[in-house]
Amino acid sequence: MSAGYLALSKPRHAAIAAGLALGFSLFAGPAGLQQARVAAAAQARPFHSQQRIAGDSDKARDAAAPVGLDRMSTGSVPTGVFGSVAFPFKPDALAQWQHMQQALDRLRREDCAGSTTCRTRMGLLQETVAAIADAPIAKKVDAVNLAVNKLLRYDTDANIYGTLDHWATPVETLTTGRGDCEDYALLKLAALRSAGLPAESLALVVVRDAKRNFFHAVLAVSTTSQTYILDNLRDTVLPDSALPQYQALYSLGAQRAWVHGYKRGSEFAMQKRPASLDKVLPGEGVANPS
């Protein structure tokens, strides 16, 4: 199984913007530095006026969707994400997922051992986390989503590790500077836990993108009003209700796992599910339901 089975004050704006710019100057060259400057300018805008910078091509839909999060308290893990009905289950990889929980707490420079690139990227992420320590939930989520999206370059497990199935820890991801969708989600999960969000409010959710017919993984953050999705395909955080193309398959929280289904009459209730979750490898290929 893949791992997917599973506004700020002006000084703080400046800290995040400077960190992003430094990261791109070190790892992405001139073109990346220009992207970082664009990202920093967007981060400096008022929170509720932010628009997506890059990612998904559905600009019209995202522009019309609600932008920005509420300031409510965190809620319990989102078992009904994307309009689904969730049932607890124990996947074969649950023990591996529980081991991953320990790795998610290793978000210090010392955890990078002798890797200079890891320590540098870790430092940039730590600057973002420190800058949002006292910020509302909305701004914590927005800042982490943007920072991780700009810090990493998308690549598949096959290209990075030579296998279709690799559980990349935050340290591994920051060492390579690359990752697939689940690696982005796991790093965001670790950063938000470090920023003070309770683990019980965060879940890695594996979905089928019905528009692209592609398996994908995102991070869900539950509040007392809605569930919000952090996605490597877009820099704007959206509520799950604004992403109707995502069919939840299963999710992993701090201590439990859920398999997701849909009520009779809903769009996804009529669609065939994968015969085995072992065939669901987010970011590695086109979904094959047989």
Rank of each mutant, 00 (worst) to 15 (best):
R193P: 03
L189A: 10
D180E: 07
T175K: 07
L187A: 05
R178M: 10
P198N: 08
S201T: 15
T175A: 04
T173I: 07
G179W: 00
L186W: 08
L174Y: 02
A203Q: 14
L202W: 08
T175H: 02
L192Y: 05
S201N: 15
T173Q: 01
P170D: 00
V171M: 04
R178C: 12
A203P: 14
E200A: 15
A203I: 15
T173D: 00
D180F: 09
G177Y: 04
Y184F: 15
P170L: 00
P198A: 12
T176G: 11
A203S: 15
C181E: 06
L189E: 12
A185S: 14
A203N: 14
G196A: 06
D180I: 11
P170A: 01
C181P: 13
L202G: 07
T176L: 10
K188M: 13
D183N: 12
A191F: 03
G179D: 01
T173L: 01
E172N: 08
R178A: 14
D183W: 02
S201M: 14
G196I: 09
E172L: 04
L187N: 03
C181A: 14
T176K: 11
A185K: 08
C181R: 12
A203R: 15
Y184R: 09
L174H: 04
A195E: 01
S194P: 05
T176M: 07
D183V: 05
L187P: 05
E182G: 10
R178K: 15
S194A: 14
L187Q: 03
A195D: 01
L197I: 14
V171Q: 04
C181K: 13
S201Y: 15
T173G: 00
D183R: 07
T173W: 00
L187R: 05
A190I: 04
P198M: 07
E200Y: 12
T175F: 00
L174N: 03
G177R: 08
C181I: 13
L174W: 00
A185Y: 08
D180R: 11
P170H: 05
A190C: 03
E182Y: 13
R193M: 09
Y184M: 05
Y184D: 02
L189C: 14
D180A: 10
T176F: 08
A185V: 13
K188L: 07
